[in-house]
């Protein structure tokens, strides 16, 4: 598949070298792309769950919010440095994901969905109510810790540095997930998605396979949450809202589920659209809702699915 690898490299080069050239033209583009990269991380993690093992969680913003607050509160209350705060954010999410996964992943599909919905609402209600801890709807802000690597220290207040930090995380997550997807585990995931019953008869513990996918996707969502807190120097209970659970679904379905890159495409389209349109049309979500339905009905494999078809037709 040399064509697709070349394409991927081109995209990465654009992201790494071309986009930053625009940093002065309008800090807007750099700013949007920073968020796109973070959202793409969130989306890729979700793709592992939905696109690769066909588990549709509608409560992933629980992990997004936990990651955001894990990072933010560590910085605010413990003056943690960047990496420690990140570690804490991810650790909190990992514990939650394991605890939830142990009983939720076992359930039949629809009960799994309903459970994630109930859990994220509990999280949202608690976050909205515990204003002293979370700042509720208004949220809390933080001063960004610098990133210290040995003798060098970077300030995250510089938008260009911030962009490269997010790009680096995006690249790392992408490489790790691509690795997983092409490994035996990844192939087993695809088998689970294709025919979960048969997989059991071949000697795989279906629950365990799905559980691994669940935890991986949750941890990545948590990472995205922490990065989101860094990006906006702020976290609020809104991160737990169910709309943030719908977003990765929109991105992966739109871009193409089960491809990882679809999440990047979906997140980019979403954010660019919101950036350019939301100022004069506040009800843009109606379009994404309609898009979800349309894509599911006419092109369930999303944009990448359409592109792949076009390529194979010559």
């Amino acid at each position: 598949m040399k064509k697709t690898t070349a394409l991927k490299i081109v995209v990465m080069v654009i992201l790494a070298l071309i986009i930053p050239l625009f940093k002065d033209v309008s800090s807007g583009l750099l700013s949007i792309m920073s968020t796109v990269l973070i959202y793409a991380i969130y989306g890729m993690g979700y793709d592992i769950l939905y696109g690769y093992t066909n588990q549709t969680s509608y409560g992933h913003s629980l992990f997004l919010g936990l990651g955001a607050y894990g990072f933010l509160l560590s910085v605010r209350n413990m003056n943690a440095d960047f990496f420690i705060a990140l570690l804490i954010g991810v650790a909190v999410v990992t514990v939650a994901a394991i605890a939830i996964g142990l009983f939720a992943v076992r359930m039949e599909e629809s009960y799994f969905v309903i459970t994630t919905i109930i859990l994220v609402w509990i999280g949202y209600y608690l976050a909205m109510n515990m204003v002293n801890i979370t700042g509720g709807d208004d949220g809390l802000s933080m001063t960004l810790p610098p990133i210290s690597l040995g003798f060098i220290s970077f300030s995250l207040y510089d938008p260009l540095i911030g962009y490269y930090v997010f790009l680096s995380f995006f690249a790392v997550v992408l490489v790790v997930l691509e690795r997983i997807v092409s490994s035996p585990l990844g192939k087993v995931f695809i088998a689970v998605r294709t025919n979960p019953n048969r997989v059991e008869f071949l000697g795989y513990n279906l629950f365990y396979c799905k559980f691994i996918a669940f935890v991986i996707s949750a941890v990545i969502a948590g990472l995205a949450g922490s990065l989101l807190a860094v990006r906006f120097r702020y976290a609020s209970a809104t991160y737990f809202n169910i709309t943030y659970s719908a977003l990765p679904i929109i991105w992966t379905v739109l871009g193409g589920a089960g491809t990882l890159w679809g999440a990047l495409i979906g997140a980019a389209i979403y954010l660019l659209f919101v950036y350019f349109v939301s100022a004069w049309w506040a009800n843009y979500l109606i379009l994404f809702g309609a898009l979800l339905i349309t894509v599911m009905k006419f092109s369930p494999k999303g944009i990448l699915g359409i592109i792949k078809k076009k390529i194979s037709w010559g």
Partner: peptide, 18 residues
């Protein structure tokens, strides 16, 4: 392959290419 892989020592390994 899926069936054959289940008898591998580490059927769920993720650190090497399938």
């Amino acid at each position: 392959w899926v069936g054959a892989n289940s008898r591998a020592k580490h059927p769920l390994k993720f650190f090497s290419s399938a």
